[in-house]
Amino acid sequence: MVMWRIGILALQGAVREHIDQIEKLGCEPVLVKSIEDLKGLNGLVLPGGESTTIRKLLDRYELLNPIRTLAQNGLPIFGTCAGLILLAEEIVGYEKPHLGLMDVVVERNSYGRQVDSFEVELSIKDIGEDIPAVFIRAPHIVSVGKEVEVLAKHDERIVFARDRHFLGCSFHPELTEDIRIMKYFVEMIKQSHTCKME
């Protein structure tokens, strides 16, 4: 069996939780702190954390363009919460996006402050029912491009979507024991690899 090498952007945030989930699925987690760490990855996870902090550190270590190039060459990327904000092509109230890879418009802190943070169970297309979702000062997806598939909504708002080999959600699957979402991402990696082989 192939052991996929999945990078986790490890500048700040919920890195340990993603390591646990990736290991549970029999894949190899790789901490990404500098350009060299991006070599030989089959997929990349952008974890939850503070998007403004992560962006500043991405700039300081010149990681933004190398990640963008890998993404444009087909590297599957999964962003949770802050990771979704990094992936989005447009952020409400900001002139420029961060990585700008996923054809979605997101809004930051769109549920209010920490006292309004919540957890709920979601039904997610192609993945399953009753999936625990923890929303912490969460963003939401305001609108999606034509090619983008909406995977889940909560209270009429889009909270989970897939655009080609990019996957992004507003909430934190990494804060739960449920690994179905990460399993879906590993399947995406497998498919993208099979495509390349052909």
Binding site: A10, L11, Q12, G13, A14, V15, R16, E17, G48, G49, E50, T53, C81, A82, Q114, V115, D116, S117, F118, E119, V120, E121, V134, F135, I136, R137, H172, L175, T176
Partner: peptide
């Protein structure tokens, strides 16, 4: 059902601050 102020939501907020100042 939507739940606020749970242990997971409160501890999770701190988990997101990890590695930070």
């Amino acid at each position: 059902m939507k739940l606020v102020g749970t242990e997971r939501v409160k501890r999770g907020m701190a988990e997101m601050q990890k590695g930070g100042v």
